[in-house]
Simulated scan of single mutants.
Amino acid sequence: MRKTGMIVLGHGSRRREVSLQFTAMVERVAREVSGAPVLPAFFSLGEPTLADQVRALALQGCDRIVVMQYFLYNGVHIEQDIPEMIAALREEFPGVEFVLQPTLQDDPALERLIVDRLLADAGR
């Protein structure tokens, strides 16, 4: 039976408070996900990195790692940079299955949130 670990991958920021807020959000999400560790990682401008967290999960015995790309749009990081990082990690961890989830682009749940927020203040 495979052991799954999860990583929420954000871009990162030079501002420490942004990194702390992202990490706190991932910790809240992790409390809602039972049965698998959920860790924050930063693509750029922050630590821990994606590679750091993959190594941490591998040390915990995870042989399947789900990477949720916490990005709004499919720019160059999504289309090129992150797939290259995942390819390198697949070479470093050949026994680990990597599942790369899509970004939030065109996600109906996000669109519903935007509609709900707009309607909450409509007519004011």
Rank of each mutant, 00 (worst) to 15 (best):
G95V: 06
Q60K: 13
L57D: 01
G61N: 08
P94M: 07
I78D: 01
T49W: 06
A51Y: 00
E91F: 02
D52R: 03
Y73D: 04
P94Y: 06
I86K: 09
L89Y: 14
V67Y: 14
I86G: 12
L104F: 13
E47V: 08
E97I: 10
I65M: 10
Y73A: 13
D81V: 05
V54R: 05
D81N: 08
M85K: 08
G61R: 02
L104H: 05
G95C: 06
A87K: 12
A58V: 11
L89M: 10
I86A: 08
D106E: 11
L59S: 12
F93R: 00
F98N: 06
L104T: 04
M85E: 14
Y70L: 06
T103R: 11
Y70F: 15
R64F: 03
G75Q: 10
P102F: 09
L113P: 01
E111F: 08
I82D: 08
D52H: 06
C62A: 07
R90M: 15
T49N: 11
I82L: 14
R90V: 05
L89S: 07
L110M: 11
L57P: 01
C62L: 02
Y73P: 00
Q105W: 10
V66L: 14
P94K: 06
L72Y: 06
R55S: 07
R55C: 02
V99M: 08
Y70G: 07
V76M: 13
L57W: 01
E111H: 10
V67L: 13
V54Q: 10
E84S: 10
V66Y: 02
